[in-house]
Amino acid sequence: MFRKIENPKDLVTIVVDGRELEVDATASVAAALLGAGMATVRRSVVTDQPRGPYCLMGICFECLVTIDGVQNRQACMVPVRDGMTISSQRGARTTQGGGR
């Protein structure tokens, strides 16, 4: 849904649903996913509909993903880090694991 118009100065590697991606080191997780062509990051809790980032400013809670094992994090509010592992979510979170 987006393309980059600059070549980022620094890149980091993140793993998204098992796939390695080289992304701009200054990006938020949401921006990195959008830049990589991922418009959908989860399926909704109540009716299992596809959802993706909507506001990119921490308001809408549509971009909830699991980051380094912590569920329901706002992808738009978390900067990427080298080696970060991100997974998309489906339905409600589990209560297993995921301590920050």
Partner: peptide, 19 residues
């Protein structure tokens, strides 16, 4: 998915140079 606010699209441009 594919629908965002204009403000979000502008944030993507300002913060990450995404068109």
């Amino acid at each position: 998915p594919g629908v965002m606010s204009v403000g979000a699209a502008q944030i993507a441009l300002k913060a990450s140079a995404l068109l």
